[in-house]
Design a protein around this nucleic acid. Structure first.
Lengths: 223, 223, 223, 223
DNA sequence: AATGAATGAGCCTTCATTCAT
DNA sequence: TATGAATGAAGGCTCATTCAT
């Protein structure tokens, strides 16, 4: 306000940012949060530990994120963005819509059984009772999006005569997604299997998923 | 106020038991724990609240259970027993093995989307990173058992010529179980849907699961 | 609940109290709080210090008092009770209502310039902006009560012909109370004088207060 | 945005001053501090808020004032100067010393029940235990000055035969000042009354103060 | 000289667990 | 054996102050 009379800028201009806006530091914090949340879950992760893991003071945490919950949500959002990209592009990587579907299935499973996705699922699910908004929002922006994507793809396939007419493509989409994950996701979630499945396993399960899905909805060749 | 008024009793009154062995009180505690864990999750449930809900003193909690974690594990085990029975008997309720399979599917979904099962899943999953034993044990004694049961049933069906030969009945069993839950379990887990599905929904999804499963493994009538 | 079937009391009866009800410990805490609040004011007093001063664990503080504010209010209330008694009885200690008035004045000043009263005033005043309820309640239950008491006494004196009629006994009462404290309370409040006035000072000021008050409202003897 | 547009200036622009000496900025800071201290009290006022209210960076605060306490003391001193002037001149605004006294009384009450004075009193009193210097200094430079002023005025009045001889004009001065404030200041201090008294109230109380004071020290006209 | 991001000590409060009764 | 008051470590968060820019 008082500066307006001094047209000069003076030594105080420089590349200054608003508080909590340095994207480098923000990333640093999220990286630390990733480690701690991932290793301990929401409640057992302490802001102290996160600050230490991020190599940042406790106060700084609160400059960048309103509170623990917001920090966690931001972390989840970041990871979701990272991962969405992969699977969503898979659908377009093959001109043959049937092969594209299988591609998507493999991508999805790879992503969903990956270290962080599993942790994120665990935490969000673990917290969903007390913080329903986080649960719902995660579900709607994550799993539900994938479902919609597939449902649209199925619609197209039906229109192109690659599949027989489907009464409820929404359900069919979820069926496909669930089949792709059979035996792979659940044990990961419960930590009964501590490493992601290898490519061979994924291929096998997705193949079987395709087989079952096409047995139901594929066009029978000949008569 | 004091013992002096009771000439009888002495150290022998009531049947003496070992510490923390009164099954009535144990049940009472587990009932309280059920309520509190279910409503708040593992970390947010306080031993204080549990003691209050169980109408028992905090000290008594520790007579019956080593600590919070053991109490929680005991609770889960009790609930699992209760629920297993239902679904497991469903398989035998119909002479026709195909109808028996559908019966089982409906039972399973009913059970798994029920209030407590959802809570238990949430908690166990939420805690699985920090306490892998709980996660693994829950998985092995819960979902995995159901899978084994179905796998054996499928084997029988194949042997009876009701299904075409199946290379991997273990995978097929999980596929069936997952199909039965499509669209029903996941949103419950994330608390995006706050009530169990009604019977009509369950019927519909299980029918579609059967249709898809039989499209793949059913014996084609005629040629 | 389950014990109801055992008419005996057993070893678990004893003189048990509800949580946070031991009056001895409550006193102990208030004594510690007195010291710390008195020495540092509301904000600068830490619950840590209070616990230490009271020789009690921090947790125990919260068994007896909901939070810092409630602890402080309880402390004030205790002190008020202690002090009210003294001054209120002073009015009845002399059959001559004029001398009773002077008695009351001396009592009031003694009380109000006393170590704790000064501290309590300081804290409540210091906190009145942020916590208006505490301020108002303190005022209404403290100073205002004294005023009412005096006002009634003045009414009686007028009725008995000891004073000329007074248009506004409420105002007159405050005038009297203020005169009694002239030069004595204010410097104490600001900590410019660190010890209570001695009896001689009090006598002098109260005499002058009486002189001025009676010059205004006393019945002029003859002409 | 950058310096490039101003060919002039350089390191010599504006008259260079010692650190923290720009009186304009100093005023700006004190204005912000006034608002925040007034609204929240000493402890609850944060340097952050003050910096924001003053439109100045937090660092600048510390260029102009050593720390929070010094800033607060400076603020009090500034306000005192502002207000003293008003009341002190009132004594000279009327040739009749009796009317001048009443004038002064009204001015004093107006000033002392005003928003800021009340806040300042609250804060200083609230802090007097921990920071006795602030309390004493405030008292000596504020209330005590007013008292001295009145005491001298009374001396003059006695000398002029307007009042009967007074043994202790210091005490009499305080008595007068206290009477002027009866019922008006105390409830403000405790925040039991949230707005300054209106002129009619002030007039009434000061009139009654004068009446009582003159009943005691006024010269009785004839016999 | 001014800035404001970063610091980290410290605050109030909670809660699993213990132990005298 | 059952009780529940007491404990004290630890948690999330704030804020006066510093310092690189």
């Amino acid at each position: 306000m008082t500066d307006t009379m001094t047209p000069v800028s003076g030594p105080a201009r420089r590349n200054r940012r608003a508080a909590g806006t340095d994207p480098e530091k923000r990333r640093q914090i999220l990286d630390g949060a990733y480690q701690v949340f991932t290793a301990r879950g929401f409640d057992a992760a302490s802001m102290n530990d996160i600050a230490a893991a991020a190599n940042v003071s406790k106060g700084t945490l609160y400059v960048y994120f309103q509170d623990k919950e917001h920090l966690f949500v931001a972390l989840i959002e970041r990871e979701r963005e990272t991962q969405k990209r992969g699977a969503f592009e898979a659908l377009d990587q093959d001109a043959d819509p049937v092969r594209a579907l299988a591609n998507f299935g493999r991508c999805l499973v790879r992503m969903i059984t990956h270290e962080f996705a599993v942790s994120a699922h665990r935490i969000v699910i673990g917290v969903a009772e007390r913080m329903p908004d986080i649960g719902r929002s995660f579900y709607e922006n994550g799993p539900m999006q994938g479902t919609r994507l597939i449902a649209r793809h199925l619609d197209r396939m039906v229109a192109e005569g690659k599949l027989v007419p489907i009464a409820d493509t929404g359900l069919a989409a979820v069926q496909f997604i669930d089949l792709c994950q059979s035996t792979l996701t659940r044990p990961r979630l419960f930590n009964a299997v501590r490493t992601p499945p290898d490519e061979a396993e994924i291929d096998h399960v997705v193949e079987e998923a395709m087989a079952m899905f096409l047995a139901r909805y594929g066009v029978k060749r000949r008569a």
